[in-house]
Structures are given as C-alpha cells and as structure tokens.
Design a protein around this nucleic acid. Structure first.
Length: 899
DNA sequence: GAACTGGAATAACGC
DNA sequence: CGGCGTTATTCCAGT
C-alpha cells in the first residue's frame, strides 16, 4: 500500500500537496484499510470500524500516511501547504510540512484521493471512507452533521440535518437561500477543487503527485481535485485551497496530515502515534474555527472522526469554510456533526429505496450519456434528462414539515455492488440556470452534493445542479488501496440518499440510484448502449421478438447472444435476427434466437450485446432461457417499454448488465428505473403508499434485490467479508432503515430477520464500519446502510467490493456472466440459481407451509437470483409481513424449492 | 467574460 | 521496438 500511495505521491510529489491528502486517507486506510481493502475483513473496519469513531480510523490512516511519506515526503508536504495548517494542528511534524502545499498539486491529489479513490478503493474507501469521513468530516459531515442534528433533535434538527446547508440557516429555506451561498460554496468548493488544481497542464503530473493519490482516501474530496482543475482558474491561494480544497483539501489535507503523520511517521520512522495526531487534531479549537458550516460536515465523523476532525478541522475549516461560506455557517455544527457523521451509513453500503412509508424515487432519470469534464476543462454542465430537463428525485411518504437533505454522489455502474465511483465525482453546478440549491460535502473521500428536500416542494427536487467530474485514471490508480482501473470504466450512476430521522431516535436511510450514465466522450458517441429490454427471459425455443431500447444503434447493428462457462470460455454464441425495418438509433427489435439446447430443465442465463463493429459493443445484457414448458413470466411490466412502443414487452431496465447487480425485475415505473439501477428494488409501488407495506418489503428486503438474476450473489459474497468483525456492532446499526424501525415495514421481513439474527448484517457486510455511532442507536439510520451489498441492498450487506472481488471484478467483467458472478461472490448462501425457480415460485403457497427454518438471509439471497424469483420473493415478503414467523417457513420453503 | 459545448488534436495504452 | 487501433486527456473555438 504504502508504495502505491507513494507512487501516487510521487506524482503528486511533485506537487507535494497531494501527498498529504492522499496519505491521509489511504494511509489511514492504508494500513488498516489496505488490508481491509484487500481484505476487507480486516479490519479496517474492525479497527476502524470500530473505532470508527474515532480513533482507529484516524490512526490507521495516518499510519499509512507515514508510508506514504517515505516515498514522498517532502514534496507532498509542500504542496499541501494549505493543509499545513491542518497538519500542524495535528501533528506537527509531518503535517506541517505537508500542509503547505497549496497548489494544484495538492488539490489534485486530494481530488484524486478523495473522490475516486476512496470510492474505488472502496473497500478501503468505504471503510476508509467511513473513517475518513470521520476524519474528514466532509465525508460525513454532510450526513453526519445533518444527521446528527436529526439525531439531536430528531426531526427538527433533522431538518437542519437534512440540510447540511442548513446548518447555516434554516434548513429548508436556508438551503435554498443558501444557494447563493451554496453556490459559492459550491463554487468554492468546486473551485477549490479546481483552483487547487493547477491548471490543467501541470496538473496531471502534479496531480499525480503522489500526494493526492494517497490522499485519495482521505481526501476523497479530492473530488475536489477535479475541481481544482476545473478551477484552474482559481488560484491556489491558500484560502482558496482551503476553501476549495476545503473539502477535498480539507479532507485531503487532513488525510494528508494524517498521512503525513502516519505515513510520515511511518516512513519517517517517526511512527508518530496516531493518537498524537489526534491529539493534535484535537485542536478542536481549530475545528471550532471551522465552525463554519462545513464544520458540520466535518463533524460527522464518528468520535474518532471528531478528533480527526479536529485536527483536521483547520483544513476543513478552510476548505469547508469555503464551501460553507455560502451557507451560513455555524460553528455549532461542529459538535453536532460528529454524531451524524458517525451515524450515516458508508457510501458503499447498499440501502433500500423504500422503507415503511417512505420511498425515494427517481422520477426522471438522467440521460444515458453525459460527457464528464476533466479538471483541466471547464464544467460541462449539469446532467440532463432525456427530455432536456433534469433528473428529478422525490421522497414519497414523508409527511413531516422538516426539510430533509438529499445526498447525491456518483456511484459505479458495474456489476458489482454499488459504491462510490473512484474515477468520477459529482460536480456542483451553480449559476442562473440552476434552480436547485446545493452544497458540497465530502464523505469518505467521496464528494457528496447535498440538496434540500422541502415539504413545500412535496419533497421533490430537480437535480439541475449536478455535473460529473472525471478524475485522471493515473491519479486514482495510484492511490493506495485502489484496485479499480479507470480505463474503460466510464459508466456511472447518480446515487441519491436521504436520511429520515424517526421519533424513536433512529434514522431511516434510503437510497435510489439512477440508470447507468456513460461519461466518456467517445463512448457516448459511438458505443451502443442498451438501457432496457422488453423481456428478461423466454423459453428456449426463442422466436419471440424483444425490444431493446438504448442509444447509438445502427442499421447494421448486430445482436449477439452468448453463453459463457464460468471459466469464461464461450459455450455458445449466435447472432440474433434484427428487424431492420423497425430500426431506430434508440431501439432495436430483435428476435430471440432459439437456445442451443431445447431441453433444458432449468433456466439458463446467457448474455447478449449489441455490436456496431469491432470494438463497439454494448455491455453485456442478461437474458434467461426457460425450459420450454415453463410459463414465461414477465418480470415486470415496464412502463418504459411500452412507451418505447415496444411490443408490449416489458422491458427491464436492467440496463447494463453490469450495472445492476440487481436488476431486480423490478420496478414499477419510472421510479423503477431508479430502483432498477440500484440494488434495491424499488418499492412495488412507487409512491409512498407503495412503499408502505408490501412494496416496501420487497425492496427493503435485501433479498429482493438479489432477485435480480444477477450476480449479486456475488455481492453477498462480499459479505463474507464483513463477517468479520467489524461489523458487529454495526450490525445493528447497519441496517439502516431496517433496524431503525423495527416497526417499520421497511425492512421487509427479511430484513427484520436479518436483524434479528443479529449478526446477520454482518454477514453482509461488514460493514465495516459502521461503527458508529449512533448514539441513539439510530443505527438504523444510517449506518446500517451502507453496505455494499449490492444486491440487496440489504442493509446489512456491505459492499464487497473491495475485497478481492472487487479488484477482480472491475476490470474484468468476469461477472458478466451471472454465473461467474455468483461464484465469486456469493458468498452468501446463495445457491446458485435455482434453476427451477420458476416452479418454485409458482408454488409459493405450498412452500410456505413447509416451513423450514433457514437462514433467511442466506436464503433470500440465493434464490433471488432469478428474475422471476423476484416476484416470488416479493410475494413471500408480503406474506411474511402479515404472518410473522411464517415468514421463516416461507423462506425455508422458498429455499427448499429453489433447491 | 464565464459557463457550456462540440470537436478534435495529442498523449497514453495495449496488442 | 515500432506500428496501429483505442481510449484518455487536453485544447480550441463557437455559442
């Protein structure tokens, strides 16, 4: 790890600044993380996790830093200048040096660090992030702070909470009002980022500076990095930095500092005690300084974080401040924030979109293509909707008068569990054309845009303030712990989260992710993209026509069905007939080719892709051949499709094969999409009511997610990781929504079950982190969430990513094939797919009766793999809901059947 | 003049 | 090691 970092640093080194940042993060993580990354289990979480609060995390990071130091010691330092302060606070030594950085490099690094990296590293990141966040505040801050507030005073505060921005002012209003500020902030922030970055040119190299990378972790913020660039404009004055960087920087700085300390220590041999750092950190005062709104964000972290924060605060302050500036600041935030921080679920945690009466829906999906901008470029504007407008997100079922905060970050769109994208960061857009106020915050090195969700707007937000920043692959890949590769990893999803504090002190965290968005210029212009398909499965006889909707289809586009063995070799490949007559650049009508074996007794999952030429292929899409006599079940009726004019076929949004892990068949309408994307299935019903009970269950239940044929199982596997320790505590916490409300339906039975099981969550993921701290025990709220698990989303699940799997995954699509996936991960219990699910579900009733007991969690997962299974599952849930323990039986049955 | 864009040149990569 | 096709980044210029 260290080395890696170093490397980055070197790059950065040049720019010294970077160093610091990266170091921090990674370092921190690195140590722990690294491991963790590597081994998720590890502890990071554990340590971190646990400590999450504080200490550990911090330390670790720092430690890593140390390493980092070795490599790049000085340089980094320099850059970090801005950071310095921070550093100083903290540590003294290293930090000191580091801090200085100011420049671009620094930010860059930061950016590197922060954002992406964290994400990517995700495992680390996530974990790390968590920690980091803590550290950084940023990360958490947003959430945390906001949250916290909620915690504090549940709702009322929550509002505040919600509005991170709010901190400043009245939540609801403020946010908006703040806009100005926020904008500023944003700008600052952004600029900061940008600013930091030097201008384009140097950037790269500098960026490389190792620093950033390292930081990555910490800084996540780095995202800022980008900005830096973007901002090229901005001069890197210290202030700017701070501000700009602030977030990143701040975090980055902090990270860096930490890193320095740590790394430095390490490297240096100093071996500065983490604590020491903290101590330094403790400077709470500094923090206080920050008071600024940002502070809140910063705060968020767990206890540990706090400390870190403190130490870092300085940075943050600056950084944040900047950002915050816009917003009203509030020193107070600081204190509060912390709580929140800790509490919020890590960004790589999989959260449901519905829980109890609440349902977070993406009413208007973003366009499938959006050219992201580099730091060296100016903004390329906000992500738009196909209609020309902008994406719209709405929270259903929320009747309180308190405004909430909608969080937005850029997530991955591969086949693994949803997690922050290491190579892309959300970019705050401000200006006359922007009607929605927003505020940038860093959470675990991932830039998070906080948008007010106001009752007066019916808890609906038009997302016209979010652009996407591309971080240089080289910068991110150098980060420690980062296992993902940037090349050809250009698809992302917009991930929205909202945390609703409950009267009981718990917080329900919901998440909705958009359909995949292709961010590269070239890909967007040339690669065929399949967004939906009217049928997910059909008898082996084939012959049926399905409608594929997407983009960049050509008259001579070919559709190839492929079946691969788990080892990757092709078992079967055939070109499907494409109706040229009905050709449209956004739609293709294809005749399902007969499967190679007409006698299959169980569903067979294959893939297909649209090919426009040699290397112009779409992502793999899934398709399942059913035994000839099996009734075809449509997964969902997709609204979209119809619109498409499809022949009545329902389309699944599977979207990219990858992307969704889950794919649950999902969803209802538009909302569905979102859901689709996300791990969790959308609530059956879109709206609130929907969520309400039944629906909720489905979604909520992790299981459901799993349903999707996909691989998710894999995700599960990830869980294994969690298994370890860390999570424990968290477990409870973890399940966010779920936990939180016992009563709440949200958790579908499954969820509940899981929880009950206690450890279960862990299984999932381990979430590492979770730590947290929810004082209130709010675990529910946030914390829980996070997990990576994809699929499901079960709250519990954590993201697997990092784990080894992740590494693999990403680049290689091994997972393409579901099968593959499963193997990989799966951990969970999942059995492979039940080939006969069909039958199974058909018999639900029966099954129910049988009752066996089972490991629900596992079960759920397993069976779910099949698409249709989803339906079944949903039914089961419902049943369960109504019939308490029967559920178990059901599950068992389900399980049995599946088998 | 700044924020967007659309294009495209140039640098990197990987085979 | 050079060539080539891709993909990633940086630049430019028009709106």
């Amino acid at each position: 790890m260290g080395n890696p970092c170093l490397a980055s640093q070197y790059h950065n080194m040049q720019s010294s600044p970077v160093i610091s940042m990266s170091s921090c993060h990674q370092t921190g993580y690195g140590l722990h993380e690294d491991n963790s990354h590597h081994n998720p289990t590890q502890g990071y979480y554990v340590p971190h996790g646990m400590r999450p609060n504080g200490a550990p995390a911090l330390e670790s990071p720092r430690i890593e830093i140390t390493t980092y130091h070795h490599q790049y010691p000085k340089e980094e330092v320099e850059e970090s200048g801005s950071l310095d302060h921070t550093v100083h606070h903290k540590r003294g030594v290293n930090s000191i040096v580091t801090l200085t950085l100011p420049n671009a490099d620094g930010y860059r690094d930061p950016s590197c660090l922060s954002p992406a990296s964290s994400a990517s590293s995700r495992s680390c990141n996530s974990d790390a992030s968590s920690y980091e966040s803590g550290f950084y505040n940023y990360d958490n801050s947003p959430q945390n702070s906001p949250w916290q507030s909620p915690c504090v005073s549940p709702k009322g505060s929550s509002s505040l909470l919600s509005c991170p921005h709010a901190p400043l002012g009245p939540p609801s209003t403020s946010p908006r009002q703040s806009p100005s500020t926020s904008p500023q902030i944003g700008s600052q922030a952004e600029e900061g980022w940008a600013g930091q970055g030097h201008s384009g040119a140097g950037k790269r190299k500098y960026s490389f500076n190792g620093a950033p990378y390292r930081q990555p972790s910490y800084t996540p913020n780095q995202s800022p990095t980008p900005s830096p660039r973007g901002s090229p404009r901005v001069s890197v004055t210290d202030e700017n930095w701070q501000t700009n960087t602030n977030q990143y920087t701040n975090s980055a700085i902090v990270a860096a500092i930490n890193a320095l300390t740590t790394d430095g220590v390490v490297d240096m041999g100093e071996g500065i005690p983490i604590k020491a750092r903290k101590t330094n950190l403790d400077h709470s005062p500094t923090v206080s300084l920050k008071t600024e709104p940002e502070g809140e964000e910063m705060v968020r972290g767990s206890e540990l974080l706090q400390e870190d924060y403190i130490s870092r605060l300085p940075f943050k302050k600056e950084g944040y401040c900047a950002g915050f500036l816009d917003v009203p600041q509030n020193p107070y935030s600081w204190s509060k924030p912390k709580p929140y921080l800790s509490s919020l679920p890590a960004l790589d945690w999989q959260l449901p979109s519905c829980s109890g009466p609440y349902s977070l829906q993406i009413e208007v999906q973003p366009k499938s293509h959006h050219r992201a901008h580099y730091e060296t470029e100016g903004s390329r504007g906000a992500v738009k909707a196909p209609s020309g407008g902008h994406p719209v997100v709405q929270l259903y079922g929320y009747m309180e008068s308190e405004p909430l905060t909608l969080q937005l970050f850029i997530g991955t769109a591969d086949d693994r569990l949803l997690r922050p994208h290491a190579f892309y960061q959300v970019h705050r857009i401000t200006g006359k054309t922007v009607s929605t106020a927003s505020h940038e915050a860093l959470q675990s090195s991932t830039k998070v845009l906080e948008i007010p969700l106001l009752p007066e707007n019916n808890m609906r937000a038009i997302i016209d303030c979010a652009g996407i920043l591309k971080l240089r692959n080289s910068d991110i890949e150098l980060r420690k712990g980062e296992t993902d590769i940037g090349r050809k990893n250009t698809r992302v999803r917009m991930v929205f989260r909202v945390h609703i504090s409950q009267p009981n002190g718990r917080t329900i965290s919901l998440q909705a992710s958009s359909n995949p968005i292709e961010c590269s210029q070239r890909s967007a212009q040339e690669l065929p993209l399949v967004e939906k398909q009217s049928l997910e499965s059909y008898p082996a006889t084939g012959g049926k026509k399905i409608l594929l909707s997407g983009h960049n289809f050509l008259p001579d586009s070919k559709v190839v069905f492929v079946e691969k063995a788990q080892d990757g070799h092709h078992l079967w490949e055939t070109e499907a007939k494409v109706e040229k007559d009905s050709f449209k650049s956004t739609g293709l009508v294809v005749e399902i080719p007969p499967y190679r074996n007409q006698r299959i007794s169980s569903p067979v999952q294959v893939n297909f892709y649209v090919c426009n030429g040699k290397r112009k292929r779409s992502q793999y899409q899934r398709f399942t051949y059913l035994p000839p006599n099996v009734p075809v079940i449509k997964t969902e009726p997709t609204d979209d499709y119809e619109s498409l004019g499809a022949q009545g076929l329902s389309v699944h949004s599977k979207s990219f094969y990858y992307g969704q892990p889950r794919l649950a068949p999902v969803e209802p309408a538009g909302g569905a999409d979102s859901s689709l994307v996300r791990g969790y299935p959308p609530c059956p019903a879109r709206h609130v009511s929907l969520c309400g009970v039944p629906a909720s269950s489905p979604e909520s239940s992790p299981t459901l997610h799993d349903l999707s044929p996909v691989t998710y199982p894999v995700c599960l596997s990830a869980s294994p990781t969690h298994a370890h320790a860390g999570p424990l505590a968290s477990a409870a916490h973890e399940a966010p929504a779920f936990l939180a409300q016992p009563s709440s339906p949200d958790r579908s039975p499954l969820v509940g079950l899981l929880h009950s099981q206690g450890g279960s969550p862990h299984h999932l993921g381990g979430p590492r982190a979770y730590q947290p701290v929810y004082p209130n025990g709010s675990p529910s709220s946030s914390s829980p969430g996070s997990n990576p698990s994809t699929p499901g989303e079960s709250p519990f699940v954590q993201a697997p990513p990092y784990s080894p799997a992740r590494s693999q995954a990403r680049s290689s699509p091994r997972s393409l094939l579901p099968e593959d996936a499963s193997p990989t991960s799966l951990a969970v219990t999942v059995k492979q797919e039940p080939q006969e699910l069909d039958q199974m579900y058909l018999d639900d009733g029966e099954c129910l009766e049988q009752g066996v007991s089972p490991d629900l969690s596992a079960l759920a997962v397993d069976r779910l793999t099949k698409p249709w299974s989803f339906s079944v599952v949903a039914m089961l849930f419902l049943v369960l809901k109504t019939a308490g323990r029967k559920t178990e039986n059901l599950f068992r049955m389900f399980h049995l059947q599946c088998r």
